[in-house]
Design a protein around this nucleic acid. Structure first.
Length: 135
DNA sequence: CGTTTGACTACGC
DNA sequence: CGCGTAGCCAAAC
């Protein structure tokens, strides 16, 4: 499906998945990555170490693509953004506008607003895998 | 070209 | 729990 250094295939897959996240739900970089199988001839172990970061990169390069990018946060339930870029507050604002609640530690409760992933048929049609669960 | 920098995670203290 | 860090590599300098 794609080669190790083929973001031209990987990134659009990420975008397609992000596009499926429903209003008021969130998921993590790692969970999205877990739906995308490792590239052929790519060590699965190594892939496991980099895939979440690849998702972050894909999102960073997604300007111009119409996406609910704000619904993607890190595995600890927090917004991952550098303070320098104002995007952090923007992301929180968008999520709260969708009813997502942050606790006193600036974290969301995946049990409440965590996305369980696309329908199995949707994944199967694209050769994708069922996501790992969120904590 | 060589170096630095990330929209990440899992794991060990 | 919180905090630091190794692991890893595509983009951006």
């Amino acid at each position: 499906m794609f080669t190790p250094a083929d973001p031209e295939t990987f990134n659009p897959l990420v975008w397609q998945i992000v596009h499926q996240i429903p209003f008021g739900k969130v998921t993590s970089y790692g969970q999205i990555a877990s739906m995308i199988p490792p590239p052929p001839n790519f060590d699965p172990l190594r892939y496991a170490h980099v895939r979440a970061r690849w998702v972050g990169t894909a999102l960073r390069l997604s300007s111009g693509v119409d996406l609910p990018w704000h619904r993607v946060i890190n595995s600890r339930g927090m917004i991952s953004h550098l303070p320098q870029f104002g995007g952090m507050e923007e992301q929180r604002r968008r999520l709260e506008a969708e009813g997502v609640v942050f606790d006193e530690d600036d974290r969301v409760d995946f049990r409440q607003v965590g996305w369980e992933g696309p329908a199995p048929e949707w994944l199967a049609e694209r050769g994708l895998l069922p996501p790992k669960k969120l904590k």
